[in-house]
Design a protein around this nucleic acid. Structure first.
Lengths: 212, 212
DNA sequence: GTGCGATGTATCGGTCCGATACATCGCGGC
DNA sequence: GCCGCGATGTATCGGACCGATACATCGCAC
């Protein structure tokens, strides 16, 4: 998961660890807490070792500047390699069952702008399936095993059931949207460097009639 | 977390691993997937090593029965010890910040029937605080950084924000309920008048930390 | 009688977290 | 002037938990 998220983010622009964590937190804030350095740095090292990312020299914005006054430990800026982009594409294509759990789904969803429409649909439907199963499980417990459980446990299940139903509805909307809307696949830009602020997918924003 | 859940469950009755997992899944189904044997069995071993649980001979329901026909590998039934109960009470009393993340909160909540009211209130309020913070973070991102993010990421944040708001309301109700006395019934529950949430003060005499 | 799914115990490698350590930078206060 | 302090930044270590896998028994259907 972390690997996937890092590769995805580095495609937007090169970054150093700290920055990566902040971006990750902003992008995934809805689905998980800030990721830990205890996993981030080792993963970065691993990705570099297999050649999916490389260290990029810290750009001295205006060239000459501030060389080695002190032996500054400098930030380590990483950028993705061509192999890394391939790997990312492969991870998207492989998206299977493990992609449907809470975290896996969230992370994949966060990179839907870089995912082709067919895969988006597959993931959304897989997720819906999974949530429906969880929902049925909760209904079973609330129906059949209710008397075995205390009031707090029951309340927890009720709350969980509610969340499931809500998520299924959300997914339905997204799926319908996906099927009817144009989905200009955001191209996996070959080696084009800069960040494109391309917000093209016409997408789910259109469901704006949220609650009052 | 697992340790806590195991000690909590074994206070209801002795169980073997497989059964424990099923009960755990039923009780915690709303908040997390089935727990893995890869963590369950090692944890059981650890808890036994420090003396919080012990192996109970598998009761041969009708005594004489089936001795060693084959060297049956038989199920290993565990029961909690007095030290284990103490440990459980201690874990409840200590409930701090780590208790407020999604899983930690859910597990503690599932054992609220064995938790004194003051602690219940503390946990509910801590959780609310935490969710409010997450909510503010999401609002920030949606407000300030919206143009930096693609439509899918934004939709994810919106969904997350909605979930936060909903959970805060849920917690408010539970807190109000808790303060004013009676059981954790949120408005539209099926059962009339609120089932007697009988905090069975765990078996005779063992725990002190209990308040009706 | 044979296959097959549920029951049941167990291990191994790998991912990720939480705590901790340490160093630099810019800023406001004394 | 210089001191603390919070933000920035890199890094490691032990431990919790997962997912895959292995293996054995039981009951039942075919």
């Amino acid at each position: 998961m972390l690997e996937f998220a890092i590769l995805g983010l580095l495609q937007e622009s090169p970054m150093h660890g700290y920055e990566l964590r902040k971006e990750l937190t902003a992008k995934l804030g809805a689905i998980r807490a800030a990721i830990s350095y205890g996993s981030l740095y080792p993963t970065l090292r691993r990705l570099q070792a297999v050649g999916w990312i490389t260290e990029a020299a810290e750009t001295p914005a205006t060239a000459e500047e501030v060389p080695a006054l002190t032996s500054r430990r400098g930030r380590v800026v990483y950028k993705i390699t061509a192999e890394g982009k391939e790997r990312f594409a492969q991870l998207i294509a492989q998206a299977g069952p493990e992609t449907y759990d809470d975290t896996g789904f969230g992370v994949h969803f966060a990179f839907f702008a870089r995912t082709d429409q067919a895969t988006r649909l597959r993931i959304l439907e897989g997720r819906r399936r999974k949530i429906e199963e969880r929902r049925e499980g909760l209904r079973d417990v609330l129906g059949r095993a209710a008397e075995r459980l205390d009031a707090y446990t029951l309340e927890l299940q009720r709350h969980g059931l509610d969340a499931c139903e809500r998520e299924v509805r959300w997914l339905e909307e997204l799926i319908a949207n996906e099927r009817s809307g144009r989905a200009p696949t955001v191209p996996n830009t070959g080696t084009a460097g800069g960040r494109r602020e391309d917000n093209s997918p016409p997408p789910p924003g259109e469901t704006r009639n949220e609650r009052p």
